[in-house]
Design a binder for these strands. Structure first.
Lengths: 206, 206
DNA sequence: CCTCAACCTGAGTTCAGTTCAGTTTGGTTC
DNA sequence: GAACCAAACTGAACTGAACTCAGGTTGAGG
């Protein structure tokens, strides 16, 4: 478990600005559809300056994905740490998953649309480091949900089932929303959150 | 609703061979990671010959996705046409969704990994035609599931809920499996099918 | 004010995808 | 069985976006 040390920002670093611009572009237009030079333009630097911060367009994408995974994990821990009752913990975790800013919606969309990148190994060092870190975080998040189910089953709050498989399924159900959800769409996120919360509880606790 | 007429195969057409090779490559290595020329090699033709059958690499991908969506829809209709009881219809539909060949597993994986392509419009005619057809088929498949739920609710077999949202969720849960499932993995598809079948019934019918 | 690392740039390279300008193949017609 | 022609194919050239290179600029700390 090699953690990536976030490059500490020099006072005139544009790393954060690049990430923000990239999230906007990749999230709205899609990774392939957005030119790397467009991101540079939006930040107000030449294209080659991007390579001072990221080894490649893909390296930037993988960084966005890792950061989003870290965020998801942190929010899960935060949301469930207080709850005693497994059903309440599950509900809190689902609500936390949908308690996100518009920027974070884009990040989740990007993450979901490019999960397949985490399978194959990458050529360059820093890309591969981000990939491995992200892959590990996926497992961490999966373990988060699985552990929640295991605890509930052992306490008798949930019927006994394959916790690993059911955990992945619950997670899959929750994140599948990000493939189609649009803030401008007809369904508000609160409504989605509520329906999915109920669905998860029925899936697990019935 | 403009249906795409499948180019009827001349006796020495390699279209089918190209599609098969492309599904293997795109499914195993990923679309971006596989060189278009590799597909040509595997079929045993020069790279430029590919353009006799597909306008572009992406056009081929979109065709694969459309064909898979058509298949999914057909299987759903086939599986549910006999069933009277809504719960049995739901169970049959889920089982049908996982009753697939290894080739079809790859096709589902490709479809899931590139759903985002269906959002933005395409430059070229034939690509755009495939994209629109695929997008429509996504809606058809969503309607398949939603209608199943509506029927069940009106018959009193399922409690009343937002059928559209719940339908998308059920579908999302089912297809989320294709992101991580590998035939070589530890969990057999039969086991997954069974767990998801139960989960869907509890989600919808409880 | 001097220094040096962080930050940036324009010009050039690469390479996969694609286009072009034809050539081959084999079934059909007379 | 020769002529024809559309489907099938090819090698060479082109394109454009990602990336490299060889330096130039800037500003915070000494």
């Amino acid at each position: 478990m090699t953690r990536i040390v976030e490059p500490e920002a020099g006072p005139r670093s544009k790393r954060a600005a690049i990430l923000t611009a990239a999230v906007d572009c990749f999230g709205e237009a899609g990774f392939d559809a957005t030119k790397w030079s467009t991101v540079a333009e939006r930040v107000g630097i030449g294209q080659t300056a991007l390579y001072h911060y990221f080894e490649s367009k893909t390296h930037c994408l993988l960084t966005i994905m890792r950061l989003e995974l870290e965020r998801s994990h942190d929010r899960f821990v935060e949301a469930t740490k207080g709850a005693e009752d497994p059903v309440e913990a599950l509900r809190a975790a689902v609500r936390a998953a949908y308690d996100v800013s518009p920027q974070e919606v884009l990040q989740m969309r990007i993450l979901q649309n490019h999960m397949d990148l985490l399978s194959g190994t990458r050529r360059s060092k820093r890309e591969e480091a981000e990939r491995v870190a992200a892959r590990q975080l996926v497992q961490v998040v999966e373990r988060d949900w699985t552990n929640l189910l295991v605890k509930g089953m052992s306490q008798g709050a949930f019927p006994l089932r394959d916790a690993q498989l059911l955990g992945s399924s619950v997670l899959g159900l929750i994140v599948s929303v990000w493939r189609w959800y649009r803030p401008s769409g007809p369904t508000p996120l609160a409504e989605i959150s509520e329906l999915i919360e109920g669905a998860c509880v029925r899936m697990v606790a019935t």
